[in-house]
Amino acid sequence: MDLLIQIIFGLLAALIIGAAMMVVTVRNIIHSALWLITSFFGVAALYLVLEAEFIAVVQVLVYVGAIAILILFAIMLTRHISSEGERLLTSRWWLTAIVALGLFGAVLLPTLAGQTWNIPLPTGPAGTPAPLSGVEELGREFVGQFLLQFEVAGILLTVALIGAIVIAFEERSRRRRVLTLSEEYTLRQRQQATAAKQAPVATADVAD
């Protein structure tokens, strides 16, 4: 059983890393977004292996169902970005590489080095509540112990939402609306009617 899980974990890890590599190496930006989705899925599967079903499902719901779609939307609505043949590496790729390696060394290496691997599963006495993975536990903790963090995150999101609305808001009177066919017809009729009415005094109104 352990071996089976090891194998599954290995496959999933390979999928996640491979997909992530494809994200940064593929030239077509849409393809890279799709590889990113593959990577998200791999992570969700990894959560499932860890028996954190709720987190796995939320990973799919939020990352795949919302964020990835947003990314795709953004790419597709942006002109000329999805064309192929763009250069993969900029002229200062070595600088980026140094920064990335530095960050990796500074942040991840100590974490990885200080990690004790292969901790045996905690075996509490029978009847111990399951670890924090269910919806109910998460919910209780959110409105209990982690209330402040929860509220801060909520306010941040609300602010972002309001900001988005402010940016996107456009007064209706200023909006250029696409007329429907029937409206165009009405418009043309009205224009003709006005033209017929104003024909005798047309020259007087030009200055207006």
Partner: peptide, 9 residues
């Protein structure tokens, strides 16, 4: 509902 949103992709 999480899975159903995948088909959008």
């Amino acid at each position: 509902f999480a899975i159903s949103s995948v088909s959008a992709i």
